[in-house]
Amino acid sequence: MTAPHGPDARITSAIPPRTVFPAAEDFRSTHGDEAPCITVRNFSFWYGTHQVLHDLTFSVPQRAVTAVIGPSGCGKSTFLRSINRMNDLIPETRATGELIVEGRNVYERGLDLVAHRQRVGMVFQRPNVFPKSIYQNVAYGPTLNALIPKADVPDLVEDCLRRAALWDEVKDRLHSPATGLSGGQQQRLCIARALGNQPSTLLMDEPCSALDPGATAKVEELILELKRDYTIVIVTHNMQQAARVSSLTGFFESGVLVEMGPTRQIFTAPTHERTEAYITGRFG
């Protein structure tokens, strides 16, 4: 979709690696010997009889940003939505294999879906704030699930808005409608809202695709900030974005994981020919 067109070497040589891959520098330190947050083993997924994910096996490290890239329809969004089981909304879906988050198979019988979705927050493609006040949006999760005492909610809301780098912009109008915010602010509010549940993991489904470049830059900055405390999996069409924010990148094609590795390696020296073709804009 948004793959850059032009000479093959454009991405890899035009921008100095140090600025392109700020997140890659600390990859080793975060990826070290900590247990992976998400482990995928022989995971396959079907819509009815149509298989969209084929036998995926890989793992996602804790407190790092893992980007999933690939052409439209490659199954990257389906994979992301399997992690918090949002695909359950679609009738007649089926999953096999294991998708383990924090030691529990997401698709096992008797999983407490409500508790699971609190641990794994999600940010969607378009900002989907509730038509309620800014405060109510952030307080939604913790109040609904009674995660903390009522008296602590205001502090939590402030904390989440600060983490989402939104506090200074909205602190004087916490009780005005969230729909009055700009698109970029709304998306950061959605991030703050997800943080309200105090999750361990954040799933981001093309979080900047509806935003202008300025708002995109702010959200990316925020992602780099958040990865210190959260495990982040981001699906993106924008390869520069994957390069800028992630330490690990996986390339999906037709429901198959073609290649996964440190972001810098994927973008400078991909081992697979299809990966190279995609990141250099030959298709997609």
Binding site: N84, L89, R117, G121, N128, V129
Partner: peptide
């Protein structure tokens, strides 16, 4: 009602 509203709510742990 947009599906995105349903999803937002369910993803935050609502039944």
């Amino acid at each position: 009602v947009p599906n995105s509203q349903r999803e937002a709510s369910l993803a935050l742990g609502a039944t």
